[in-house]
Nucleic acid binder design. Structure first.
Length: 274
DNA sequence: AGATGCACCTGTATGC
DNA sequence: TGCATACAGGTGCATC
């Protein structure tokens, strides 16, 4: 599922449902989805903690607790974190349930079981979740064409792989990488060491508008993704590149093409993306 | 060091 | 119908 716009939507939709509540019971149904600390310690330590705020870093969802502990979640491909009334039917791959003192449940479900949870203590250094390796947030003021060029222009990789590299820029995934390169009119296989300054400008300038318009539509759902309240995203019909192979390019009319870059399905216009 | 490919899982779609 | 294969929003690790 979830790239930056989807996690941001989960963060925003969970916020009013869980902030200020206390976790009065926690069940870990599948211990292996807890990456740190051990599942038993995780379950015990999170109990009786009050939820202070929700946050996001790259594609990581953060739930800050009053004690200074942070519940970190990564939903990977098919994960969901949602707050529901307890009578709501259980997703068949529900791996953790946190009962809140407002009568609702915060549930983590993930069909493919790639998703992970971490509980980080106040002041504990995080060398394991992957957050420490993340690059800049796209909405950071320091992000721009100069940053991207500096980080990528000496590497010999396709630009699509460059903007998918979470240690360069945090939050883009397979859908929005294709959308960004379509908007920038840059071919996804263009090598980062052959990009012009104009192309660096176009790519950098496309990123925030693409992410913001997806956020404004609550993200993109094509199969599994739901927000924190269990609603689908509405951005799918607005995609210009992803999944559009065989259809006319919305800019020039040429037939859109699908290929593979770095093992990932990639959609682009062979005429107007250079 | 940097680039590439595969492993981790389950579910769905497609073709024979 | 049954079976084999390919593919899916992500990341980490082994290997060259």
């Amino acid at each position: 599922m979830p790239e930056l716009p989807e996690i941001e939507t989960v963060k925003r939709t969970l916020e009013p449902l869980i902030c200020g509540t206390t976790i009065i019971k926690s069940q870990i149904i599948r211990p292996e989805i807890v990456a740190h600390p051990g599942a038993a310690e995780f379950r015990e330590r999170i109990c009786n903690q009050r939820i202070a705020a929700t946050g996001r870093r790259g594609k990581y969802l953060l739930i800050h607790l009053d004690s200074g502990d942070t519940l970190i979640a990564h939903l990977r491909m098919t994960g969901r974190m949602l707050c529901t009334p307890p009578e709501h039917p259980l997703h068949p791959h529900t791996h953790a349930i946190f009962t809140l003192d407002n009568g609702r449940e915060l549930r983590f479900a993930d069909t493919r079981r790639f998703g992970r949870l971490w509980l980080l203590g106040a002041g504990e250094s995080d060398d394991f979740s992957g957050i420490h390796r993340l690059g800049i947030e796209p909405f950071d003021q320091a992000f721009g064409a100069a940053y991207l060029k500096e980080k990528l222009s000496r590497r010999h990789i396709a630009i699509k792989q460059g903007i998918l590299d979470q240690s360069v820029i945090a939050g883009l995934g397979n859908i929005y990488a294709d959308e960004v390169l379509f908007a920038a009119a840059v071919a996804p296989f263009r090598r980062t060491d052959s990009m012009t300054d104009t192309q660096w400008q176009s790519v950098a300038a496309a990123i925030c508008p693409i992410l913001n318009s997806a956020i404004s539509r609550n993200g993109t759902t094509f199969s599994d993704y739901l927000d924190g309240a269990g609603r689908e995203g509405e951005n799918m019909p607005y995609l210009q590149a992803y999944k559009r192979a065989g259809r006319a390019c919305n800019r020039c009319g040429e037939t859109m093409v699908r290929t593979k870059i770095g093992g990932r399905s990639t959609f682009y216009c062979p005429n107007c993306q250079k």
